[in-house]
Design a protein around this nucleic acid. Sequence first.
RNA 1: GGGCCGGUAGCUCAGUCUGGCAGAGCGACGGACUCUUAAUCCGUCGGUCGCGUGUUCAAAUCGCGCCCGGCCCGCCA
Length: 551
Amino acid sequence: MSQEHPSEADPYAVLKNNDSAFWADAVADAVEARNPEEPMVIKGGVSPSGIPHIGHPNEILRGYFVAEALRDRGREVRQVFTSDDRDRLRKLPRRLANLDGEIVGLGEIDAGALGRNLGRPYTDIPDPFGCCDSYGDHFTELLRRDMERLGVEVDFRSNTALYEVGAFDDVIRHVLANQDRAREVLARYQDQIDEEYVPFFAICEDCGQLTETITAVDLEADTVSYRCTDVETGGDTIEGCGHEGTTALRNGKLPWRFEWPAQWGILDVDHEPFGKDHAEGSWPSGVDIARNVLDVVPPVPMVYEWFTLEGEALSSSGGHVVTVDEVLDILEPAVLRYFFSKAPLKQRDFSIERIDQLVDEFDEFERVYFGETDAPERERVRAERAYPKVVEAVREKRVRIPYTFAAVLGMTDDPDLREEIARREGHVPDDAPEWAVEEALARVERARNWARRTGNEFDYELKRSAMPDVSFDEATEQALDELAEFVAEGHDGEAIQGEIYETAKRHDIEVADFFAAGYQLFFDDDEGPKLGPFLGKLDQQFVVERLRRKG
RNA sequence: GGGCCGGUAGCUCAGUCUGGCAGAGCGACGGACUCUUAAUCCGUCGGUCGCGUGUUCAAAUCGCGCCCGGCCCGCCA
């Protein structure tokens, strides 16, 4: 048995007492210090209770960075993720999502049918969308797809499947054979642990609910007897059916505080990151139970902080969530991975409104890695360690169009025009390889999605195919004709901008009103991007005809 | 009520381990340009490092007390 690591008493210790520029190296140090057998195992896990949101990747990406840090040292590492899908459904989520990530309210599915499954394991509940084998499989599949999009290779393991194939058999028998010891240790963390308490829940053969009232244990026959009684969950009561029966050990589960350390033993886990909610409840009891009931060595722990969304706590039940899928519509996977590479203990806000700041920060981080900008030593080292783990491939020739400029380019749908303007503005070097140009322009589409989603100051759409319905007074019409003439002579954007001003003055039109006329013609709006330079970048014939109100 | 984590410029964040000039980007403002507007370039502005206190030649950094936010201290996971 390996000796106790200081982090067992304090799961924050791993991240605090270290001088690594990149936190994952500190965790990797702690993992290596235990001399684990290879492949080393890094685990995460959650219950598939509903739509996976932007907080869930913490559970996998934190471990991913540690895995990569260990691989840098030549270690073989496997990442596993348990879908804790034998947990019971405790309450109905307000919103669900189909496999395409489209969110639907409870009202759009058969909520009554779903509600009759309260208290049953997720894997025993029919998929409300009818596409997967169960409710649990459905939401696990959504998370699996998110991880695929993020490009992290993880071995998903169904907890239910582990029970069914007997992976838990030995540990369940051990716990049930040493119930006094189990109760004694658990009682240090939970009240109401009396002689009647049996650390095992059975699935009622009549109604399918997980019941906690175990009346007898027969380790010769590998069965337990139970009475299906009411279950209290967070103030609500799920009624039991009263059935009394006897069922196999594989047809049940360990309570969480035993199940977690049992997973460590079964999967031979060397490291596991977890949210701060586990740091003071489950972790200490998990260590105690692992050491003193199961004879299992706890993994190296790491606590990560939760982050907020637009300044407020994420809330699945309250609907204040954003999915990985939605986020990847507006930024590259590398940027999202970058977000999760930052110090785990800082409380951070994830803001869609200001996502441009995150992207800018990533671009700068990338420049630091390639030595294209000055940076303090510590930041340089961090970039050196973290950057290769954040991107799909380290390629110095990559091209990044600044995010807000990409949003400006997104005002036109024309891909050729987007590229032409980007090149003219110097955001795409002449010698940029084709793949780099393609990827750079992909950001334009994402920035466009962002502008549209937030309805921000970049959310303008060039009305190219059809002229908006407009009418102007005579002076304005004459001024527009003159401006058309000027554009037809061939001037650059700066000159056009000046001429807009001049033309307005000549016709005694308020400058602001004349700009507004231009915005109406091109954007069907009263405001928009800086008009002269924007028109200067469009093709001249189109601009001239539009100014003449000829389509 | 007790414990844990966080709090640094308007915003997003480095820096805190190991005390040594308060930092970056974005932003705002002014200019480059007869110009209300994105981008580009130049310049300027920007701080009670949550508050107080102790230690020290020296504190964002170490100690103590407090404030604010999140989480844990029932059950569940």
